[in-house]
Nucleic acid binder design. Structure first.
Lengths: 247, 247
DNA sequence: GGACACGGTTGACATGGATCAACCCCCAAA
DNA sequence: TTTGGGGGTTGATCCATGTCAACCGTGTCC
């Protein structure tokens, strides 16, 4: 008996959602799991959601139920102070998790906004906790992911606390390049998804300062910028700027 | 048959180390556990260690095996860049956990140094993971603690990225005050354990700037400073400085 | 008790990045 | 083709904080 069209469609959707078929499984939560364990993880990830550019995945203050794995696309997270100031706390790309900040108070503590049309997998957190009590590898990997986030944040604190404008931008570009590489994209050429203002907010700088630093890097032959398109021409040069702090 | 002196001593040491007798249990890892669960947690925390002022609890690069709960005392953590720059990433006090950053790579990513004579409980991490696969409340609380660390780091990023010197120092003092209060100490009067340079490093400022800001707060009647002794005289005033960003 | 060292304070000056403002570029919609 | 708006660039100026330097206070070791 042939499958009905409807059933076919569902089954394709399921296949597409499965962690075991996801090309991000080596970066994402399923890392290190056996086929059978991954199948169990798949069971609890049955919602995938499209988020259009500019839309919020969640907002600060909303109650926390799930974390999200980015299947495709690009996000920023930002926090808002009562007095109106805000700051971008991170840019997230495919294979990275969003929402870990919500565990502590059971409410999200920041906003997550898509910077391009994106897709995320919903991971209901209490079910993830249940499963990670049964699968040691999942438990341990999840702890590593959280810890990595802490280490990353320390890096940003370092950047904000001790680096000058051009050092910060060089560090930012090298970090992006390295993350694109890890995802199989060109390490030398990419489109920025965020505005100068968002970069500045993340780096603790004003947009004009970011713009000037880009221009300066271009003059020095380190990069080629055209609007959001970046070509990195001299990685060692950027590294030197980053770590050569007495001008 | 009377207990031998040796046995007595051991038994006292055990009692003193037990989470169930620790007055920090409401702040620390045992939070929310039943008596029986706490007893199981106790089983794996059988090493307590004294760290003298100035000594390292661990150093960046050392392999990671345990996390540490501070029983008494005061620590700082700092990270070092290859080019020699370093930054204090946090100050930790009784009831707080140290070492979470080491989970991700299985090596510590920062140094932890005692700022006064201190005592910590060793918590072997793999045993903690084993136990938290069995005790849901422990698992969940541990996740909350890690998440809280992420949220805290976002707060510091905010501070470093958007606040001016006096706002940063006001935020720092209010944070310390609040944490002392939570531990049953005076919220208005305490001794700083760290130097102006360490405060500056944490806040992304030079020590002279920190010193000037202290003097300014004193002139304005917000605090009374004498060396490391601080008396907070006007909490609302400090809050206003913190959030009133157009001078 | 004197001297030394370390941490802290204060002043004078330098400077990196913020601010304010003009203008440009790119693209989309009329 | 024109118009409008958002994002980006660049210049002139200002100011908060860094830098450099002198000096002070406190505690410690001869």
């Amino acid at each position: 008996m042939p499958l009905s069209p409807v059933y076919k469609e569902i089954s394709i959707a399921v296949i597409k959602t499965a962690c075991s078929n996801c090309n991000l499984r080596e970066l994402c939560l399923p890392f290190g799991l056996s086929e059978e364990e991954m199948a169990r993880l798949d069971e609890l990830i049955n919602v995938r959601k499209r988020i259009k550019r500019g839309e919020h995945l969640y907002r600060a203050g909303q109650s926390f139920e799930s974390i999200y794995a980015i299947r495709s696309g690009f996000f920023k997270t930002d926090v808002l102070l009562e007095d109106g100031r805000d700051q971008v706390t991170g840019f997230q790309m495919a294979g990275e998790l969003l929402g870990l900040d919500g565990i502590s108070t059971e409410h999200h503590s920041c906003n997550a906004v898509a910077l391009e049309d994106s897709e995320v997998c919903h991971i209901p957190f209490s079910r993830l906790e249940n499963l990670s009590r049964e699968i040691q590898a999942l438990q341990h990997h999840f702890h590593k992911v959280m810890s990595r986030e802490i280490v990353r944040d320390h890096g940003v604190m370092m950047l904000l606390g001790t680096m000058r404008a051009e050092e910060r931008l060089a560090a930012f570009l090298l970090n992006l390049s390295q993350r694109f590489t890890a995802r199989g994209f060109s390490h030398a050429e990419f489109n920025l998804r965020m505005t100068r203002e968002e970069i500045g907010s993340y780096l603790g700088l004003k947009l004009e300062t970011v713009s000037r630093a880009f221009s300066r890097f271009q003059e020095e032959g380190l990069i080629a910028v055209q609007q959001k398109h970046i070509r990195i021409l001299d990685i060692p040069g950027l590294k030197q700027i980053m770590s050569h702090h007495n001008h």
